[in-house]
Design a protein around this nucleic acid. Sequence first.
RNA 1: GCCGAGGUAGCUCAACGGUAGAGCAACAGUUUUGUAAACUGUAGGUUGUGGGUUCGAAACCCAUCCUCGGCUCCA
Length: 583
Amino acid sequence: MENNLHTSRHSLSHIMAKAVQELWPGTKLGIGPAIDNGFYYDFDSEHKFVPEDLKTIEAKMKEIIKSREKFVCESMSKDDAIKLFESRGEVYKVELVKELEDGTISIYRTGEFIDLCKGPHIEHTGLINNFKLTHIAGAYWKGDEKRPMLQRVYGLSFENKDALNAYIKQQEEAAKRDHRKLGTELDLFSINENVGPGLVLLHPKGGMLRKELEDWIKNENIKRGYDMVYSPHVARLHLWQISGHANFYSENMFQPIEVDEQKYQLKPMNCPFHIEIYRSHLRSYRDLPLRYSELGTVYRYERSGVVHGLFRVRGFTQDDAHIFCTPEQVGKEVEDCFNFALHIMKTFGFKNYSVELSVWDENKPENYTGTKEDWEKAQAALEAVLNANKVPYTVHAGEAAFYGPKIDIKVVDAIGRSWQLSTIQFDFNLPGKFDLEYVGNDGKRARPIMIHRAMFGSIERFMGVIIEHFAGLFPLWLAPVQVKVLTLTDNEIEYSKALVAKMKMAGIRAEIDCRSEKLGAKIREAHVQKVPYSIIVGSKEAAENKITLRLRSGTNMEGLEVDDFIKTLKEEVAAFSLENYYK
RNA sequence: GCCGAGGUAGCUCAACGGUAGAGCAACAGUUUUGUAAACUGUAGGUUGUGGGUUCGAAACCCAUCCUCGGCUCCA
């Protein structure tokens, strides 16, 4: 069934291309594959597609579908294929054919329409039963920004109309948990035009969420033997020249600023600072491994079209750490980092994540520092950890950092895009650049190995991901407001204020809602703001010195002792638990 | 950065060449409420910004900034 769907999606892309060429003769074809939810085709056309064209194309496609035209496969020699596509002006197809290995080439005809294609296809166009064109976007030919930009038309297609509608419905539901939308609704953060693109303002509730995350990760670091360090946001450009960032990373850096005729650079990474701390003493093998951690705020110049909510910003804080160790220690250190990352996935309840091993592109050594031998050794070391832990992973060539290979963990956002969180990176560039040393047990100087790692990745991105993951319904320990006390009348204000004060003293984030609104309105507001627990106080509660608890689900628990409630709440918080999450 | 679509009140949107409006939120008053929105009123905008066209511009043109969907790139 899955294969059939893939085939019919691919056939749809042919039908769309045929429709477009009939509507706008002279349109050249790029590529047109089936994708996860449908299909697309890239066109080079003098006609600039506008959204209204989608309806026109759809109508034309429906005609083609009605005509039940056959998909006919033909084989021919490479030379004949080149001649055929040249005669039709299909320059992109000619380029594709030329890249194919010598031998027989297959093409598919649908009436007059011809496409280079290895198939398979459905038998005839009449077998298509549903599709919907969704949007137009630009896409570089062969994904290369130096090549022409083609116009890509996307379409959706599923087994049947119900499945298509279900998909559209699901996307609409997913959009409701978009962190940018929830960020405004729950008053967590804003990104303001005066401040600048990609620069985040955390409002009090977002600030509290971040504080909880920071406390948690600092604790986890300390438990695992990390030291905490702090470093400045700028440093002399000289530092970045030593590290190589000024050469290999300059495209991603803000322009230097001049102070007292010296150039200073806003930091895009924290590594050089931690290295300078390492260099502040002569180190012994007995000192290693040294693990320096910092919530380091970095600034990167991101091109204007790529910033995206909290996911891709220009100023962000990494839960960064650098581990300096001997070659013998490196395997265990990488493994510990990897398990740390898995611990995060578990604590926050992520089940849908993927592990990637990012290695260099050996055809482009000029983009990297280090020798071939370095790279192969390091990649083998990372691979060994993944294999030993029996983790499924994929290898991505050319996605390594310029200074070394890495293990990345990615999670999927509300609408299916995947974002990198944890990263564990090998570095054989910086120890050499900064001439790092330690004294071995033989009394000789040796070069330490350096590992960069971030577990959340960046706190901003991580916050964005958990906002979507929990759809704003944070587990108790993360909820910016944990308890809202709702008064029934003004007579209960005094008792309620005392309750709030008592909870605050116990370390619970409680607020009062004593507006002159009806109880229903206060409950609604607390619900919309996704507060985990509400306490309702009327004359009965105040007289008996008790509380009525209302859970997020709507369940009520009457006649509770305040002290008991505080105790249970504190236990739930301390457990960092997702157990009570759905109650 | 590139292709395309957009920026109107705090939020969601309307008006689309002829006096900028609505709902929610905010604020004030009234109401004192028992489980998902009380009532009345008030205030809030050089329509992103800067130019231009026009008797007249939120609307048309140019530039620029920002946002969104992709591409490319990344934590």
